[in-house]
C-alpha cells in the first residue's frame, strides 16, 4: 500500500488532573493507543460516546495537541516536527471543522475576511479582485449567496455558520477535512442539509474526511470505514457495509441496538450500565463491566485490535481473537 495521507501510530494522550489542592494528580487517559490510517478519497467515520476520546483524537490528528506517546504522520513525516514548507503544506492539506459554529468564527470579522483569511495566509490570491472572486466561489460552493460577503457571523443561523466554517476550510483546497461533530449543534432539517453538503463536496472534490460523530445514522450515510472508540481505544474498525451488516464487538452491537429505530412500532434495546469516566478505566477490556458477553479473561487481559481470521476488519475482543 502506498503511504497514507494521514496516519496515527500508537497514539496516546494522557492529561494530568489535580482534584483539589493536596490531592494526588490523577491521570486521564483520553486517547490510549490508537492506530489509524486515512487514505486518499476516503471517509473514516469515528463513533463513540462522551469520554471516548474522539475529540482529543481529532486535535492530535490536527497537530493541535502534542501526544504523550506515538506519532501522527503526514505523508510519512511526523506532523509534530514539521518545519516551514512541510508544515505549511500540512496546514493546507488538512483542515478542520468543529462542532460549535458560534465559537469558531471571530464575531468582529466580516465573511470576506473570515473566508478570505486562509487564502491570504497561504498566499493563494494575488489581488483583492481575485480574493473577492474566490470567496464568492467558495460561498457558492457551500450554498450561500454573494450578499453574505459583507455580513458578520451573528447575522447567520447555526446552519449557515457551519456552511461558513466549511467554506473557510475549503478555501485552501485541502485534501482532508477533520470534522468533529459538525452537525450536533444543528436542527434536524439543517443537519440533513449540511450532511448532504459534505457528501456533495466529497463527490466534486475527491476530499477525504475524518468524520467524528456520536450519531451512527450520520456515520453510516457518509463513511467508507467506521472506527468505534471507547475510553480512548478503538474497539472495532471495519468497512461500512461489514460493520452495519454484522458488527462484531459487543459494544458496537450495543450502540447499533440503542440507536432509535426508524421502523415504526419497534423500540430500541435498553442497554445496561453507565458510561464510565475516563479517569477510572477498568482493567482488562475497558468495556467488560457493561459487556453482556464477558468471560474469564475479559477483566484481566486487554484485548488487542486484531483481524480475526486474517480479514480486513479489526476487532479488539477476546470472543474473536485468541488471548
Amino acid at each position: 500500500m502506498s503511504t497514507p495521507l494521514l496516519e496515527a501510530r500508537g497514539l496516546r494522550k494522557y492529561f494530568s488532573l489535580r482534584r483539589g489542592l493536596w490531592a494526588r494528580p490523577m491521570v486521564l487517559r483520553a486517547v490510549d493507543g490508537v492506530d489509524l490510517q486515512v487514505g486518499k478519497d476516503m471517509v473514516l467515520g469515528v463513533v463513540g460516546e462522551s469520554g471516548s476520546g474522539k475529540s482529543t483524537l481529532a486535535r492530535l490528528l490536527l497537530a493541535l495537541l502534542e501526544p504523550t506517546e506515538g506519532d501522527v504522520l503526514f505523508m510519512g513525516h511526523s506532523v509534530f516536527t514539521l518545519k516551514d514548507e512541510l508544515m505549511r503544506a500540512f496546514r493546507q492539506a488538512v483542515q478542520a471543522v468543529f462542532q460549535d459554529p458560534f465559537a469558531s468564527l471571530n464575531p468582529r470579522k466580516r465573511v470576506l475576511e473570515l473566508v478570505g483569511e486562509p487564502l491570504r495566509i497561504h498566499a493563494l490570491v494575488q489581488s483583492r479582485g481575485e480574493l473577492l472572486e474566490r470567496v464568492r466561489e467558495l460561498l457558492q460552493a457551500v450554498g450561500l449567496g454573494p450578499e453574505a460577503l459583507w455580513r458578520y457571523p451573528h447575522e447567520f443561523s447555526g446552519g449557515q455558520r457551519q456552511r461558513l466554517c466549511i467554506a473557510r476550510a475549503l478555501a485552501v483546497e485541502p485534501r482532508l477535512i477533520i470534522a468533529d461533530e459538525p452537525l450536533s449543534a444543528l436542527d434536524v432539517s439543517i443537519q440533513a442539509q449540511v450532511l448532504s453538503l459534505f457528501a456533495e463536496l466529497r463527490r466534486q472534490r475527491g476530499l477525504s474526511y475524518v468524520f467524528i460523530s456520536h450519531d451512527l445514522r450520520v456515520v453510516q450515510y457518509l463513511s467508507d470505514t467506521v472506527a468505534v472508540m471507547y475510553l480512548g481505544r478503538v474497539l472495532e474498525q471495519a468497512s461500512r457495509e461489514e460493520f452495519f451488516r454484522k458488527p462484531l464487538h459487543p459494544y458496537s452491537q450495543m450502540l447499533l441496538a440503542s440507536a432509535p429505530s426508524l421502523e415504526p412500532g419497534r423500540r430500541r434495546a435498553v442497554p445496561k450500565g453507565d458510561v464510565p469516566s475516563p479517569l477510572e478505566v477498568p482493567t482488562g477490556c475497558p468495556f467488560h463491566p457493561r459487556c453482556p458477553r464477558r468471560f474469564s479473561p475479559c477483566d484481566q487481559v486487554l484485548p488487542k485490535l486484531q483481524a480475526p481470521g486474517g480479514g480486513g476488519r479489526l476487532v479488539a475482543c477476546h470472543l474473536y481473537n485468541p488471548y
Binding site: S189, A192, Q193, R217, V218
Partner: peptide, 28 residues
C-alpha cells in the same frame, strides 16, 4: 409511517438512512 403533512414528511426524510438519498427540507 404515513405522515400527512409535507413538513412531517420532510423531517422524516431528513433522517439519514442507509442506501437512501437524503432529501433535506430547503431553506430555514
Amino acid at each position: 409511517s404515513r405522515p400527512l403533512h409535507p413538513y412531517t414528511r420532510g423531517l422524516l426524510e431528513s433522517l439519514p438512512r442507509a442506501g437512501q438519498p437524503l432529501r433535506p427540507i430547503p431553506g430555514m
